[in-house]
Write a protein that binds this DNA or RNA. Structure first.
Lengths: 232, 232
DNA sequence: GGACCTGTTTGATCTGACGCAAACTGGGAG
DNA sequence: CTCCCAGTTTGCGTCAGATCAAACAGGTCC
């Protein structure tokens, strides 16, 4: 991998506590691969041959039900490790990862994982924290789905997207990858129709400004109130 | 801790790959504590002073929303590690754990965790797998909540309960701790009224047999069909 | 054995969100 | 410049499931 990446990678939480020399050894084993917009990094149920760190771009991770419905599990942001099915004791990927913009990732063979961890226990500790915080997120989402109604869930989803992938423009925070109504629906367990209606209403109130595969939040504070306030 | 527990504990997945001598050291640091039915092991947002392995009994882990609604995150079954907030990089527990029957757990101070893991890297590896499989479960639940309707979700919940805590009787599989309609509702994101109606209907069809805080599944196969079949 | 409490059942009504259908539009391809 | 298509908007009927309300029953305590 090119040298300029190393300085970026060295500061990632995943490599906290890893000695620079060891980090070099680890990085030497990786190759960097580009994924064009719309191509998949891996597919659900496919054998988990590799694990990854995203360097640049954005991925949508999604699960498909037996009857073909899709659910967006999360979006991967640069710096995150993903596809660590093998570390979790699986032999196949539990979901599909799709590049929503041109993306670049470091790729290791899954088989290297046990050796890297044995040599570098910090990796295991950091991985527990990563997986742990994803578990928290998932539980938060379960609670949301159980207790909140659709408008509130969409508000939360947008705020989360803004936090992870928000690009500040003059007129609010823009989500800096293409995202459709359908995508938001699949994040919140509703339909694109309902999302469209909600966004239209918010647009009228000056809360958001959106169009084709594009959403920007004009008034994050008001949206936050809407997301948190017990309905009144 | 009493000797008789050691043989049981040695076979737990959490201690796979740990040398017997090291395991003894680990267990020496634990105390075993009993929790009476109805008492809490720890509370949401409380400082995470300890982590645990359940030896006997059943715990309900739940989250409470700001406006007081409860959601059951999972039930803890003997052999499971729980309350490992600290390993996941948190300082407080993200949920409340309540003994639903008289229970017994091994308890370590959270502060011991880093040392135990440093001495015993297998612990970290096993923890990743444990947390990883909980993450899978949580995602499965998100997908369920997003795509399936209530009856199906309740069916899945019951089958999961039967698997984890089913006691085979002559007339089917009985869930071997007290569980109310309200509890099932909080597991599936619905109301106790709806759960009651569904169970009544199933009772008429001879699928289940239930009463006050008690559910047994008479025909697991039919229930499974109901849970999996695309509605028809 | 009766009172009482907690959990359960069942009915009636209401509504948020879905499903269907159709029209609309921005932006890329040729 | 125009065509075309994927993504979006909007109206309308419907229904699963929530909410409101009330009666009911199994256990436990005295």
């Amino acid at each position: 991998m090119p040298n300029l990446d190393k300085s970026l990678v060295a500061d990632l939480p995943m490599f906290a506590g890893v000695e620079p020399d060891d980090l070099n050894d680890i990085l030497r084993e990786a190759q960097s691969i580009r994924y064009q917009k719309g191509t998949s990094v891996f597919q659900q149920d496919e054998e988990a041959r590799s694990f990854f760190i995203l360097l640049h771009g954005h991925l949508r991770v999604m699960k498909v039900t037996p009857d073909g419905q899709q659910v967006v599990v999360r979006y991967v942001t640069p710096g995150e490790i993903f596809g660590i099915a093998m570390a979790m004791g699986r032999t196949t990927y539990p979901a599909t990862a799709l590049a929503v913009v041109d993306s670049l990732a470091l790729v290791w063979p899954s088989a290297a994982w046990p050796r890297l961890v044995a040599k570098n226990p910090s990796l295991a500790v950091n991985t527990i924290q990563t997986v742990g915080s994803r578990l928290q997120d998932a539980h938060t989402r379960v609670v949301e789905m159980s207790t909140e109604q659709v408008e509130r869930r969409v508000a939360h989803a947008l705020l989360r997207l803004a936090k992870q992938a928000g690009r500040k423009g003059e007129d609010g925070i823009q989500i800096d990858f293409p995202i459709s109504r359908q995508d938001v629906a699949e994040m919140t367990g509703t339909t694109l129709h309902t999302v469209s209606r909600i966004l239209s209403a918010w647009e009228d109130q000056g809360l958001v400004e959106s169009g084709r595969q594009r959403i920007s939040i004009r008034d994050p504070h008001k949206l936050f109130i809407l997301a948190e306030r017990p309905s009144d």
